[in-house]
Write a protein that binds this DNA or RNA. Structure first.
Length: 498
RNA sequence: GGCCCGUUAGUCAAAGUGGUUAAGACACCGCCCUUUCACGGCGGUAGUGUGAGUUCGAGUCUCGCACGGGUCACCA
C-alpha cells in the first residue's frame, strides 16, 4: 500500500464508449474530489484497448463532459503531463515490455489456444491453464517460430487465498483456486483492461484508484499482478453501484430502460451540470452536516473517503428535480434567462429578451415568474404554451370558490377591468399592477375576485406561472385586449343562453 | 449455479469504538399565507428484512435464513 506522505494522485480512466453514464461521472467526481481535497493531482487517462469498440467523437465527448462539469484534470491526453501519453493505445510498447518481464520471471506464459477452442470450452474455466500453462520451453519456441498467434496469461497461484483491503468495503479474501489465469496481452497485441490498468496506475504514480464496486470481484487479479511485479499497490476505493428502479419495483444497474442516464441526456432535459454533480455526489456519500445543496468547491472542502457508503443506491429523478430547482434559484436573473433561452425560443425572439446586453422587462418578468417554480427546463414550453396560443377553455374556468368568483361576478369584473386597462398608456408591470389593485379597491372586492377572471381570460388556463399583471405584460397590449374581449364575449353569450 | 458484496421509511441518508423518545432531505398528505399553481411558514404519515444468540442494554457484535446486487470474456 502507498503511504500517505506522497502527493495524492487519482485518475479517471474511462473507455471511449460514446456516452457518459452518470455512474461513470460519479466515479470521476469522487476521484476529482479526493485529489483536490488534499491538493493532489487528478489525471485523465483514456482506456481504449478494445479495437472493435472504437467510436468516433467518443474522446471529445469525455473532454466536453469534464469541462462542463468543471472536473478539471491536471494531466491528460489533450494537455499532456510528465507521464504522457495518456491514451492506452499509444502505450502498447510499455505493456509488452511488462508482460515479457513476467514471462521471463516465470509468472506468465504464452497461451496458444485459438478463439474456436476458447468458445468451445467456454464453460471450462481452466481450459487454458491445463493446456498451455505447462508447455515446455521447447514446445513454446516451436510454436513461436511457426508464428502461431498467442495471448499472454498470468500464472495464478493454484492454492491459498488472496487478501486485500478496500477503503470502503474493508478486508476481503478470495480462494486462489477460484481464479482463472488472466489474460494480460490479447492475441491482437493489445493489453487487457486489467493489465493496462495496473501497469499504467503504477507507471503514473496513482495513489488512489476510485471505481465502481462491480470491479470488486476482480480485485484479487490486481493484487496478484502487483505482487508478480513486486510493485506497491495503490489504495482502492470501491463505490457502491447506482441502481435504477424498474416498473415492477425491482432494481437493477442504472440503464437506459430507466430513462435518461447519461450526462448529455440529463442536460438535454434541462438539468444543470452543477445540479447533476451535486446530486450524484450525494448518491453514495454524505457530508458531516445536514446541508444538501453544494457547489463543487464546497464539495472539495467537505469530501472524505470515510463517508462513502457501500450499499447500492437508486437514482431518483425526484430528488434531482429538487436539487436542480435549488441551483436554478441561485442563478442571477440574467444567467437564469440565458440558461432558459433555448427553451424560450418558441415564444420570444432574442430582441424580446436582451436589449443592449441587458434584460428587457419581459425577460425580468419571465425570470421572476419561472425561477421559483421550475424544476427542469424542459417543462418551460408546456408551462408557457398559453402565451403562444389562447387555449380553448370552458366558461366554468371563471368560477372559483377560493377567490369567490362566479360567472356573474366575472362578467362584471372583466368589464370594469377592460375599461380601466384601456386607459393605461404605459404598458408595464408597475403601472398595470397599481392600476389593477387600485381598481379592486375601488370596487370594494378582494384582489382575487377581481384578478381571477382577468387572468383566466388572458391565459385560458387555471394554472399559470405568474398572475394577471405579469401575463398582460408578456402578451403585450394588443394580444391582451384580444383575449380579454374573447373572454367577455364568452361570458355575455352565456347570459343570453340562460 | 460457484465466488464476492450489500440490507435503516417509497427514495437518498445520519446515528466515531453497543447506552435517553432512530437526525436531516426528496416525494406524499394536511393547515396557514397568497391574485391560481407554485414559493414560503407550520405540522403529519412512514423505517432498523427475519429468526436466534451475546449483553443490564443491539440499527450497531456473532450465527442461521430471506431478499437484493455484482462477478464469473483474448469487454471495459
Amino acid at each position: 500500500m502507498k503511504t500517505a506522505k506522497e502527493e495524492i494522485r487519482t485518475r479517471f480512466a474511462p473507455s471511449p464508449t460514446g456516452f457518459m453514464h452518470v455512474g461513470n461521472l460519479r466515479t470521476a467526481l469522487y476521484a476529482f474530489l479526493i485529489a483536490k481535497h488534499s491538493n493532489g493531482k487528478f489525471v485523465l487517462r483514456i482506456e481504449d484497448t478494445d479495437k472493435n469498440r472504437k467510436i468516433k467523437g467518443a474522446i471529445e465527448l469525455i473532454y466536453e463532459t469534464l469541462k462542463e462539469t468543471k472536473l478539471v484534470y491536471d494531466e491528460g491526453p489533450d494537455i499532456g503531463g510528465k507521464f504522457a501519453p495518456y491514451i492506452q493505445s499509444e502505450r502498447l510498447e510499455k505493456y509488452k515490455i511488462c508482460a515479457d518481464k513476467l514471462i521471463k520471471n516465470n509468472k506468465a506464459y504464452y497461451c496458444f489456444c485459438n478463439e474456436q477452442e476458447n468458445k468451445q470450452n467456454k464453460h471450462e474455466k481452466f481450459f487454458a491453464k491445463d493446456k498451455c500453462r505447462n508447455l515446455t520451453k521447447n514446445e513454446v519456441d516451436k510454436l513461436l517460430i511457426k508464428k502461431v498467434p498467442f495471448a499472454i496469461r498470468q500464472k495464478m497461484p493454484l492454492s491459498g487465498t488472496t487478501n486485500f483491503s478496500d477503503c470502503v468495503f474493508g478486508s476481503i479474501s478470495v480462494e486462489n483456486k477460484e481464479l482463472e489465469d488472466q489474460v494480460l496481452i490479447k492475441r491482437d497485441g493489445y493489453p487487457t483492461y486489467n493489465f493496462a490498468n495496473v501497469v499504467d496506475d503504477h507507471d503514473m504514480n496513482i495513489t488512489h484508484v476510485i471505481r465502481g464496486s462491480e470491479y470488486l470481484s476482480s480485485m484479487p487479479k490486481y493484487v496478484l499482478l502487483y505482487e508478480a511485479f513486486g510493485w506497491i499497490a495503490p489504495l482502492y476505493v470501491h463505490v457502491g453501484l447506482i441502481m435504477g428502479q424498474n416498473e415492477n419495483g425491482s432494481v437493477s444497474k442504472f440503464s437506459k430502460r430507466h430513462g435518461a442516464i447519461s450526462f448529455k441526456e440529463l442536460k438535454h432535459i434541462g438539468y444543470l451540470p452543477e445540479a447533476i454533480i451535486n446530486y450524484i455526489a450525494l448518491l453514495g456519500w454524505s457530508p458531516d452536516c445536514t446541508r444538501e445543496i453544494f457547489s463543487l468547491d464546497e464539495l472539495i472542502k467537505l469530501f472524505s473517503t470515510e463517508r462513502i457508503n457501500k450499499s447500492p443506491s437508486i437514482f431518483a429523478y425526484e430528488k434531482l428535480n429538487w436539487i436542480n430547482s435549488e441551483h436554478l434559484k441561485l442563478k442571477s436573473d440574467k444567467n437564469f434567462i440565458k440558461i432558459c433561452f433555448p427553451f424560450l425560443k418558441d415564444f420570444f425572439r432574442e430582441s424580446h429578451i436582451f436589449k443592449d446586453k441587458k434584460l428587457t422587462e419581459k425577460a425580468k418578468i419571465l425570470s421572476a415568474v419561472l425561477k421559483p417554480r421550475i424544476t427542469i427546463l424542459k417543462s418551460i414550453p408546456d408551462m408557457l404554451s398559453f402565451l403562444k396560443r389562447l387555449p380553448e377553455y370552458e366558461i366554468s374556468l371563471f368560477e372559483n370558490k377560493k377567490s369567490k368568483s362566479d360567472i356573474k361576478s366575472s362578467k362584471k369584473m372583466l368589464k370594469v377591468g377592460i375599461e380601466e386597462l384601456e386607459k393605461i398608456k404605459n404598458w408595464d408591470l408597475e403601472t398595470l399592477k397599481s392600476i389593477l389593485l387600485k381598481t379592486a379597491k375601488k370596487l370594494k372586492v378582494k384582489n382575487g375576485k377581481f384578478l381571477w377572471p382577468i387572468r383566466i381570460a388572458v391565459s385560458g388556463t387555471n394554472i399559470t406561472p405568474g398572475g394577471a399583471p405579469e401575463i398582460l405584460v408578456l402578451l403585450g397590449k394588443n394580444e391582451s385586449f384580444k383575449r380579454l374581449k374573447i373572454g367577455l364575449e364568452k361570458l355575455l353569450n352565456n347570459n343570453i343562453k340562460n
